Simulated assay, not measured.
Amino acid sequence: MNKIRITKQFSFETGHALYGYDGKCKNVHGHSYKLNVTVIGTPITDTSNVKYGMVIDFGDLKRIVKSEIVDKFDHATVFNKNTPHIELARELESRDHSVILVDYQPTSENMVVDFAEKIKRQLPANIQLFSLKLQETETSFAEWFASDQAPRHNKSPQPPKGE
Score class of each variant (00 low, 15 high):
residue 2 N to Q: 08
residue 2 N to S: 09
residue 3 K to G: 03
residue 4 I to S: 05
residue 8 K to M: 07
residue 9 Q to A: 14
residue 9 Q to P: 13
residue 9 Q to M: 15
residue 9 Q to W: 11
residue 10 F to A: 10
residue 11 S to I: 14
residue 12 F to S: 04
residue 13 E to F: 08
residue 14 T to V: 09
residue 15 G to K: 01
residue 19 Y to W: 14
residue 19 Y to M: 02
residue 19 Y to G: 02
residue 19 Y to I: 01
residue 20 G to I: 07
residue 23 G to Y: 09
residue 23 G to I: 10
residue 26 K to P: 01
residue 26 K to N: 14
residue 27 N to I: 03
residue 31 H to S: 03
residue 32 S to Q: 07
residue 34 K to Y: 10
residue 34 K to P: 13
residue 36 N to F: 05
residue 39 V to M: 08
residue 40 I to C: 09
residue 41 G to Y: 05
residue 42 T to S: 09
residue 42 T to A: 04
residue 44 I to V: 10
residue 45 T to G: 11
residue 45 T to R: 07
residue 48 S to Q: 08
residue 50 V to A: 02
residue 50 V to E: 08
residue 51 K to S: 15
residue 51 K to P: 04
residue 53 G to R: 03
residue 54 M to D: 04
residue 55 V to A: 14
residue 58 F to Y: 04
residue 59 G to D: 13
residue 60 D to G: 13
residue 60 D to C: 11
residue 61 L to K: 13
residue 61 L to P: 08
residue 61 L to E: 06
residue 61 L to Q: 07
residue 62 K to F: 12
residue 64 I to G: 01
residue 65 V to S: 03
residue 65 V to W: 03
residue 65 V to T: 10
residue 66 K to G: 06
residue 67 S to Y: 07
residue 67 S to V: 12
residue 68 E to T: 15
residue 69 I to Y: 00
residue 71 D to M: 08
residue 73 F to G: 01
residue 74 D to E: 07
residue 74 D to T: 06
residue 75 H to W: 09
residue 77 T to V: 05
residue 80 N to W: 06
residue 80 N to R: 05
residue 81 K to R: 07
residue 82 N to H: 08
residue 89 A to R: 04
residue 90 R to I: 10
residue 91 E to N: 07
residue 92 L to F: 13
residue 94 S to W: 03
residue 94 S to Y: 05
residue 95 R to I: 15
residue 95 R to K: 11
residue 95 R to E: 07
residue 96 D to E: 13
residue 96 D to A: 11
residue 99 V to L: 07
residue 99 V to K: 00
residue 99 V to N: 01
residue 101 L to P: 01
residue 103 D to H: 03
residue 105 Q to R: 11
residue 106 P to D: 13
residue 106 P to E: 04
residue 107 T to H: 04
residue 108 S to V: 12
residue 109 E to N: 04
residue 109 E to A: 15
residue 111 M to R: 03
residue 113 V to A: 08
residue 113 V to L: 12
residue 114 D to C: 10
residue 114 D to V: 02
residue 115 F to R: 06
residue 119 I to C: 01
residue 119 I to R: 03
residue 120 K to V: 12
residue 121 R to H: 15
residue 121 R to M: 15
residue 121 R to K: 12
residue 123 L to H: 05
residue 123 L to G: 01
residue 123 L to S: 02
residue 124 P to C: 02
residue 125 A to H: 10
residue 126 N to R: 02
residue 127 I to S: 04
residue 127 I to E: 04
residue 128 Q to V: 01
residue 130 F to Y: 15
residue 130 F to M: 09
residue 130 F to Q: 04
residue 130 F to C: 13
residue 131 S to F: 07
residue 131 S to T: 06
residue 131 S to E: 12
residue 132 L to K: 02
residue 133 K to H: 14
residue 134 L to H: 03
residue 135 Q to K: 12
residue 137 T to F: 10
residue 137 T to W: 12
residue 140 S to C: 08
residue 143 E to K: 15
residue 144 W to H: 01
residue 144 W to K: 01
residue 145 F to S: 02
residue 145 F to E: 00
residue 147 S to H: 14
residue 150 A to Q: 05
residue 150 A to P: 00
residue 150 A to I: 13
residue 150 A to G: 00
residue 151 P to L: 13
residue 154 N to K: 07
residue 154 N to E: 11
residue 155 K to S: 06
residue 155 K to N: 06
residue 156 S to P: 00
residue 156 S to R: 11
residue 157 P to Y: 10
residue 158 Q to L: 05
residue 160 P to L: 12
residue 161 K to E: 14
residue 162 G to Y: 12
residue 162 G to V: 02
residue 162 G to K: 01
residue 163 E to T: 02
